[in-house]
Amino acid sequence: MRLSGITYRNSVRLCLLAFFVFTLTINGQSKKPSEEEKIFRQIEEGIGKSSVDKFSGYFLNKVFISLATGTPKNYSANQAYYVIKNFLGIHNPTGFKFDFISGGTANPFAWGELKYIKNGMKGKAKVFITLINEKNQWKISQITIN
């Protein structure tokens, strides 16, 4: 059977080809999370579950940490681990999500609200994290919890 110069078999092949191309295009268009976003999601999970191990591997050699309590300083990666761990130990997170994640810039950053319980009292704090590219790897350069 011919359909305006195209045989039936060929038309089926064409349809199948078109289907594959369409499917691939759709998949291509659905946004893949960038490297920075993946890291921010890991940080989000780590903070939400009070598990610093989930993101401590991304600490830069010197991380600027500014917490609601204490003077902000640059800490070594080792120190940063315990500083954040101790903070989350006192301010037990009940929920955390990044409200905004920026990417595609030289210094991607994310901003969210942390809900916690401290000594039986509920509280909220703004969390703000920036990344920096060091030797082609994204590292956490700053953590602010206000």
């Binding site: 050699n61 010197k62 640059n74 905004f100 920026s102 810039t105 030289a106 210094n107 950053f109 901003w111 703004k126 703000f128 920036t130 920096i132």
Partner: peptide, 23 residues
């Protein structure tokens, strides 16, 4: 610490600062 200081001076903070100002 000198490279870190230089890095801080050269950091492109424009978008970040604008975001913080709005928030």
């Amino acid at each position: 610490s000198l490279p870190a200081t230089a890095q801080e001076f050269l950091r492109g903070n424009e978008k970040l600062n604008e975001f913080i100002a709005i928030q």
